[in-house]
Amino acid sequence: MPFDPTTLDGPFTALAAFEWGGDAAPLGVIDAAVVAAHGDAALTADLEKRLGSVISGATSRAAKDYACRKLSMIGTAASVPVLVPLLTDPDESHMARFALERIPAAAAADALRQALGTVRGDLVIGMISSLANRRDAASVKPLAALLGGDATTAAAAASALGRIATADAAAALAAAKIQPGPVADAVIDARLACADAFLAAGNRGSAQAIYESIAARIGDTPTTHRDRVVRIAAQSGILACLDDTVAL
């Protein structure tokens, strides 16, 4: 049965005034509408517009939280301009990403990438995290630039490059000049992730080169537990590369 959009007026009025602890029954109507919008372009567009108004309006954090969750399910490129202003707000940035990370449109990735240069502190790590989850290959260059930043950001950027795991990402990680410490550990983890991805894709040569590079860096007599673990990873990788019986 087609969903009657006029039944949404009351629930959206309630949502605009919603606070945690308030009556959640009207939200259930919106929940149902979001499910019913599958394959219904008009209802989707109507819902997207209404949810965008909640986000842009003078509404509570709870209301915006709810709207972002729903846009994460049905949002399109049209929602990106509505969500972008929230990215710089420490209270709202995560929920804006909650939506943007899931919106498949290229505009959503573009917005997250551009925000790398406009947000501050931990919010940068949020952008990095979402770009990593999207495995956004276009982000390799800006992420590589963050490898020279503060330790927490650099470690997150390294991890993201390991998740993206393209040849460019692996090259950026290999080129990183990092002093021993947490960031260097994150770079090694990410390089191993790239090697594992290459091996899984049948690119034994590229994988083996990374494993051997890391093994050489650790040497035959690792001095710390962490180095011993990394050596296990690198040596296991080398063996897998050399073993033609391993199905890739």
Partner: peptide, 18 residues
């Protein structure tokens, strides 16, 4: 099913990442 694929995961609150 692009909508179902949206539900494979969710954004993590900063500074936490996978």
């Amino acid at each position: 099913d692009e909508e179902a694929n949206r539900l494979l995961d969710r954004a993590r609150r900063e500074p936490w990442t996978l």
